[in-house]
């Protein structure tokens, strides 16, 4: 599944444009909203967009892994497994970025790198653990078909437990800022736009990176096929 170069360049340009626009808005143009102004470092608010967008992509990637896993079990076509695996790897990258940027944001605004009683933080950490476990599973299973089946089953289990965990842990107190909901939307229209742009831009970036990773996966499969022919 090779994206033609023209499509790739277009995607890259669009992603870059969106992200730069969001960055400009967030870092320069927008005013820090009321509720944030009396924090210790009000300008920290501006770095929020990057974190939110990468967390969104991490969850999106996970969703794609789930779809790939389910479709593989249904159809037995290895392309779905390739999609699931590639999205998992890309997902780990963005999830790592989300956790690090979130941690930096927390340090800047609240003075601590981590909060062990915050729901969204914990969920993202669990997501990261599930991703990594999934990749560890694949690394320890040599046969192509079996690897695909086993990781598909684990992928589905992993995904099931994310909404289960959300439901379960609404009993926990959260200090995670809920800026996105329009009801508590006191971040102002400029920031909302920046948020939207950054999410869109990161999504395109994800598609791009996923395409590249899929290509590597596809090449690996071809190489294996070639190797087995040479073995004859």
């Amino acid at each position: 599944m090779r994206l033609p170069p023209s499509v790739r360049i277009a995607l890259l340009a669009a992603a870059a444009a969106l992200i730069l626009a969001a960055a400009y808005l967030g870092l320069v143009a927008v005013e820090v909203p009321e509720s944030w102004r009396d924090e210790t470092a009000p300008d920290m608010f501006r770095t929020m967009f990057f974190h939110v967008a990468s967390a969104w992509v991490a969850y999106l990637a996970f969703g794609v892994t789930f779809v790939g896993s389910a479709m593989y079990l249904r159809s037995r076509r290895l392309e779905w497994d390739a999609l699931a695996a590639s999205s998992a790897e890309v997902g780990v990258v963005f999830c790592t970025v989300a956790i690090i940027s979130g941690s930096l944001f927390a340090k800047g605004t609240w003075g601590v790198y981590w909060l062990w009683d915050d729901l969204k933080l914990m969920m993202t950490l669990v997501l990261w653990l599930v991703f990594v476990a999934y990749l560890a599973l694949r690394a320890n299973m040599p046969g192509r078909q079996r690897r695909a089946s086993l990781s598909a089953v684990f992928g589905i289990i992993g995904v099931i437990c994310i909404p289960l965990s959300f439901a379960a842990n609404r009993i926990w107190v959260t200090t995670h800022p809920t800026v996105i909901a329009s009801s508590s939307g006191d971040i102002g229209p400029g920031s909302a736009l920046a948020l939207l742009l950054s999410v869109l831009g990161f999504t395109l970036l994800y598609v791009l990176v996923l395409g590249m990773r899929l290509e590597v996966e596809h090449l690996r499969d071809e190489l294996e096929a070639l190797k087995s022919r040479v073995g004859d």
Partner: peptide, 24 residues
Amino acid sequence: AISANLRQSEVMLPVLLVPVLLFT
């Protein structure tokens, strides 16, 4: 059942099971 098929199956069981169990 999954980890029984993997290499390093002894350590893979907790590696796979704990993330799923943790927040549930």
